[in-house]
Design a protein around this nucleic acid. Structure first.
Lengths: 265, 265
DNA sequence: ATATACTGTTTATATTGTACACAATTTACT
DNA sequence: AGTAAATTGTGTACAATATAAACAGTATAT
């Protein structure tokens, strides 16, 4: 083994098992029977189940039986269910990125990043249910972070400023992703069921949110904007764009300030 | 019963059980033995456990035995554990708000709101682990939303714009809250353990995040900014403020645009 | 007084994640 | 070739957990 292999081995030990697996830091076994499954297969099966029936439906037993094996067989591939969740989360981020744009189109580039991130929540409604274990450290997740940084590359910003912008944008994308997911679910459930099944809480909140207790919120409850009952009138896509443009404006203004400061100096 | 009671009853049925409980929409029972516990007591006990040992440590059995009762006794107060989580989440938002500021100090008002929200994550590290069930509908949660809307009240914005700003700020607060929580945890674990216990992944990522695969991220990994190893040098509090100021700038610019458009017209 | 509704408890069940020992299988080494 | 070692999938077992159901005691309404 070369010296680099040793350090990669150490890296594997330093990372959580799921992360180490996602980086492929597992030496393939030499002896013993051939494997009948693969990590990719297991993760994909788990994702299929989660896509169909939600994250709560993902159990070791169900994954295994979907593949025609026993629950315990999975532990020959993945040390624990938590590690499987990490792998699922990373795999959900494994999609092709759009081509790079010229630096002048940074706003459009960042818009693409945010929309792409939101899309993960729509494609995999369970994505936001996976508990967060600190900053992203898995390969596809980091590819997304790299994507976010792409339009910022040529900007006159230090690393802290760049990270702050990524934090800003990714947090916004997450919030919108969760909301978008909820709306998708409600639409899928059907408006009739929404009305009677209690998914629409507008009527209840109109009673409970009083003018005295909630002077600022109450008008939004009354107008129905808070519960977004008429999402056809004002599609949330627009809401989402609106907030994003404010962030981009804030970034642009900071860049202009900095540019001005350079000229003055 | 008056007509209003009836509609409140209907409201109780329309809401999830946890939410109905949080609004106090439960008729006190007339007959039978006196209750030996209270919902408040149960929720507080659950919060104490979560504060101490994390959300995963909160089980019906543990809560009950902490109170000197059996697990099943809790079901006389709360229909399910999911409902208990809703109650915990709402209770974590039950704290006094700062006094209102003049409309001119809207930036400071919004800063207070964001910092206050982040503080919930620091005070209750489990807060972000509770799964989100759609938009907030519980009383203390809505009080927080009302708080966010307070500095926006006098602004020339329609309801959609106000909601968008709240979404923007609350999403940012959540992101920062989660990160701040992780940092608090790491600090509490101690830097020595962080170095050897694997909480600091810097070394591993330096190996794995290559220039070719991650051209934009790699410099931030190398400088250590991504993993925030030197959070003393550039305290995250500042990172956090930085992003917030960009949001506020974006909002301010929009207000100025609108004002300008009014003058032109 | 008595029926009724409620209390906390006991018992039981279904679902999980996963530890452990086993037999079969493939490879490395002698 | 033959044997030892490592690895595979499996069967069994266990512990934790949420919660359903039946029960005996208790406070109130009639």
């Amino acid at each position: 083994m070369s010296e680099q292999d040793i350090t990669l081995d150490e890296a594997a030990k330093a990372l959580p098992a799921g992360a180490a697996l996602s980086w492929g830091l597992v030496k393939p076994s030499q002896r013993g029977p051939k494997r009948e499954m693969s990590i990719e297969q297991i993760v994909q099966t788990a994702i299929d189940i989660a896509d169909k029936d939600g994250l709560a439906a993902v159990s070791m037993g169900r994954i295994a039986s979907a593949l025609g094996f026993t629950a315990m067989s999975l532990y020959r591939y993945i040390p624990s269910k938590d590690d499987l969740l990490i792998l699922m989360q990373d795999e959900a981020c494994n999609f092709p990125l759009p081509p790079e744009r010229p630096a002048s189109e940074w706003r459009e580039g960042l818009r693409e990043y945010v929309m792409g991130t939101i899309n993960v929540f729509r494609k995999h409604p369970w994505y936001g249910d996976i508990p967060i274990f600190g900053i992203p450290i898995t390969p596809n997740n980091l590819r997304i972070v790299d994507w976010a940084l792409r339009p910022l590359r040529e900007m006159p910003l230090n690393d802290y400023e760049k990270m702050s912008f990524v934090l800003l944008l990714s947090g916004y994308a997450r919030s919108c992703g969760m909301i978008q997911r909820d709306i998708d679910r409600a639409v899928q459930a059907g408006s009739s069921e929404r009305e009677f099944g209690g998914l629409n809480y507008t009527a209840a909140l109109r009673l409970l949110v009083t003018q005295e207790q909630y002077p600022n919120l109450q008008p939004l409850i009354m107008s129905g904007v808070y519960t977004e009952e008429n999402s056809g009138e004002n599609p949330v896509g627009n809401d989402l764009d609106f907030g994003l443009e404010r962030i981009l404006d804030g970034i642009e203004q900071y860049l202009n300030q900095k540019k001005q400061a350079d000229i003055d100096q």
